[in-house]
């Protein structure tokens, strides 16, 4: 059974849909990366998951049941915007966490404070944005969570601390913790996540296991004897998302079964066919229909 199961989630603010008909499954022990530009609906999805916002429609179940107070105890959430108190010290925040969570692990908290070189005596107002993020992460990771929900956990961090945070996710996953995190940096998600979903204007654009997406999506390039070739019905093949022609070359963005599509190109006269691997960013760009809103967004970028 999925650890988290989101079905047909819609959340509307003042008649503007922030999330529309979103369905996702987060499997136990997986690291699930939620990708998308600002305003794609990632934070709204998290808020609905945590009961901080009421869905306009749809359900969110944890191992088949709605979020209970007992489940909430085992869940750690780090919001994108700091919720720390400026006038309190780092140590006081940890003390607050210890009192609020029966599962608080002081030893783990001390380890993490050390890892990020955080000073418990410092007041939050004197911390940089990156250090505030790290304090919030220490608080989240020290309650022995079974589910971690992290909204942009690496934003504002330098590359070394970004890597340290990604390693915390890897470490948590190795301990069997289920992690859901968002990022707009595809490279980080590609590293730490085993499953991803890409949101665009509140809608799901693409989701799946990272390795399956990479194994499935290919550019199939065919070279023809001259530029007067016709590819007949191949352009409307459901596996083909995009067709780019230049001279005697055609490049097809293919979602799956690239081999079969390549064979079809050969059948209409291509003398050389090759498959090119795509990384997540390429897959994202190729999945987007250039005529859609998302396509317009990419064009404008």
């Amino acid at each position: 059974m999925s650890t988290i199961s989101i079905r047909d989630l819609t959340k509307t603010y003042n008649a503007t849909p922030a999330v529309q008909d979103l369905s996702l499954d987060v499997e136990p022990g997986s690291v699930f990366g939620l990708l998308g530009p600002n305003g794609a609906g990632k934070t709204t999805t998290f808020k609905c998951m945590l009961g901080l916002a009421q869905p306009s429609n749809g359900t969110i179940l944890y191992e088949g049941e709605p979020l209970t107070p007992a489940r909430f105890e085992t869940l750690s959430y780090v919001p994108e915007k700091s919720v720390l108190y400026d006038w309190m010290t780092v140590g006081q925040h940890l003390e607050m966490q210890r009192r609020a969570f029966a599962r608080f692990d002081g030893k783990r908290a001390a380890e993490l404070m050390n890892l990020f070189s955080l000073d418990p005596k410092k007041r939050v107002r004197n911390l940089s944005k990156g250090m505030r993020t790290m304090v919030a992460l220490v608080m989240a990771f020290s309650t022995q969570p079974e589910i971690l929900v992290l909204d942009e956990p690496t934003s504002g961090l330098d590359p070394i601390n970004q890597r340290a945070v990604l390693n915390l996710l890897v470490d948590a996953a190795a301990r069997g913790v289920t992690v859901v995190f968002s990022s707009h940096q595809i490279g980080q998600v590609e590293r730490a996540a085993d499953t991803i979903a890409i949101l665009q204007r509140g809608r799901l654009l693409l989701s799946g296991a990272v390795d399956d997406l990479k194994a499935g999506w290919k550019i199939v390039e065919g070279i023809f004897p001259d530029d007067r070739f016709a590819i007949n019905g191949i352009a409307s093949d459901p596996r083909v998302h995009r067709v780019d022609r230049a001279g005697r070359i055609v490049r097809l963005s293919v979602e799956r079964e690239a081999g079969a599509v390549g064979a079809a190109l050969q059948a209409v006269g291509a003398e050389s066919v090759r498959e090119v691997d795509l990384n997540l960013e390429d897959i994202f760009l190729n999945a987007v229909d250039p005529k859609s809103e998302a396509g317009a967004y990419l064009e404008a970028r």
């Binding site: 390693n167 890897v170 470490d171 190795a174 996540a193 085993d194």
Partner: peptide, 18 residues
């Protein structure tokens, strides 16, 4: 171990296990 290699390369442990 799966965990050691995952941490060393900062990649998902399920990927190493696979």
């Amino acid at each position: 171990t799966v965990k050691a290699l995952a941490l060393d390369l900062t990649i998902n442990p399920n990927t190493v296990a696979r």
